[in-house]
């Protein structure tokens, strides 16, 4: 089971540290509170999309224009975005960190949710490196994802394995991010 919580502000601190300019997203149940917290971060522009398959092409355009985007979509949406991942991320060598909501993550217990069942096999099949983040304790994996994407010119996934906490005072037991 997961210990601790995941605070959006700690993830946002990582995005700011890595000079992220745009957060291209379709909100999902895991990341809903991230959206609210990001609205208070002036250095990052939120780009809401209508369908997950738009997120990677929008990010590709932003990157070509000299910006530094990330995307945030749910695992079920990643499956919908498969052709965009193929053609406009893997195919062009796009260094892109993709935050993927791990809906139905089975470490919370037995799950009938196939959205969770297929996420890691899907990422393996597409040869996408990934890191699972389940609480603030795991946030040192985020800079590794940014470094890996930049080094390899390939997309790298950060699977968000829990729902973001709503506020900073909701029982966090972690020591936060290592700076």
């Amino acid at each position: 089971m997961i210990n601790g919580v995941l605070h959006p502000k700690k993830v946002i601190a990582q995005l700011v540290k890595h000079r992220v300019s745009h957060y291209v997203t379709l909100p999902d149940s895991e990341t809903a509170h991230m959206y609210e917290a990001l609205m208070a971060e002036p250095s990052i522009t939120i780009v809401p999309v209508s369908r997950e398959g738009e997120a990677i092409p929008v990010a590709a355009g932003l990157f070509v224009a000299g910006q530094n985007p990330v995307i945030s979509i749910q695992n079920a949406g990643l499956y919908e975005a498969g052709d965009a991942l193929r053609g406009l991320a893997l195919g062009i060598g796009l260094p892109l960190v993709m935050f993927i909501g791990y809906r139905g993550h089975n470490r919370k217990g037995d799950t009938p949710d196939s959205a969770a069942t297929f996420l890691e096999p899907f990422l393996h099949m597409w040869r996408v490196d990934y890191f699972v983040v389940e609480s603030n304790h795991d946030l040192d994996r985020v800079p590794v994802a940014f470094e890996r994407a930049a080094k390899t010119n390939q997309p790298v996934a950060v699977a968000i394995g829990t729902e973001y906490a709503k506020t900073e005072d909701s029982g966090d037991q972690s020591k936060g991010i290592k700076e």
Binding site: H22, V24, T45, V47, V49, E54, P57, V58, A59, A60, G61, L62, F63, V64, A65, G66, Q67, P69, L88
Partner: peptide, 10 residues
């Protein structure tokens, strides 16, 4: 979608 990203970025 690519065009949107380019327009927002430039």
């Amino acid at each position: 979608s690519v065009a949107l990203g380019l327009a927002l970025g430039k």
